[in-house]
């Protein structure tokens, strides 16, 4: 094996002295070719690249990428789910607020109607009471008027008798003797009419 002193790098002994320097070995005695352009190593590199990269590709495609993709998808779903839940909770809270406000409005309306009803019924009661009192007063007034009228008629009736008596008395004093009762009554009646 041909190893030029210049190639005796620090690494060479560590890797083992039995190694073959293919690049140098090909051109023993001549100038060593530039390793990346040494076509004698191509077949080996292509084969091992195909094996390793092929296995790497299959491993990533079958195992690693589905796994990472799954992790990312689960996370995305979880975030979306959490957001949905948050939105749901928010809508629930909004509904609760709306229900509360509606109840409040209903209660207010109810309070108003109750107040109105109380006011109305009180007013109606007062009206009934007032009408009753008014009717009673009316009745009493009518009775009084009737009483007055009866008193007036009886009084008026008595006026005729008193006039007759007075006229008879006057006639008696004037002419002495008894006056004709019927004539006096007729005379008084004539005067009064």
């Amino acid at each position: 094996m041909f190893v030029t002193p210049g190639y005796a790098q620090e690494a060479a002994p560590a890797e083992g002295e039995t190694h073959t320097e293919t690049g140098a070995g090909h051109e023993a005695g001549g100038k060593p070719s530039f390793p990346p352009f040494d076509s004698s190593t191509f077949a080996s590199q292509i084969l091992w690249l195909a094996i390793t990269f092929g296995l790497f590709y299959l491993f990533l495609k079958k195992v690693v990428l589905p796994r990472i993709g799954g992790i990312l998808e689960v996370r995305r779903d979880r975030i979306a789910q959490d957001l949905d839940q948050a939105a749901l909770m928010k809508s629930e809270a909004d509904a609760a607020v709306a229900a509360y406000e509606q109840e409040l409005a209903e209660a207010k309306a109810k309070a108003n109607t109750i107040g109105q009803q109380a006011r109305d019924s009180a007013k109606a009661d007062a009206d009934v009471e007032r009408k009753k009192v008014e009717a009673a007063l009316e009745q009493k007034l009518g009775e009084a008027e009737a009483h007055i009228a009866s008193i007036k008629t009886s009084a008026m009736k008595e006026v005729g008798t008193i006039a007759e008596d007075t006229a008879a008395a006057i006639v008696q004093e004037l002419i002495g003797g008894k006056a004709d009762k019927a004539a006096v009554a007729a005379a008084v009646k004539a005067v009064r009419e």
């Binding site: 890797e15 190694h19 293919t22 690049g23 530039f34 390793p35 990346p36 040494d38 080996s44």
Partner: peptide
């Protein structure tokens, strides 16, 4: 250049 040498 040594680092690019391929050893069997």
């Amino acid at each position: 250049i040594h680092q690019f040498h391929i050893t069997k």
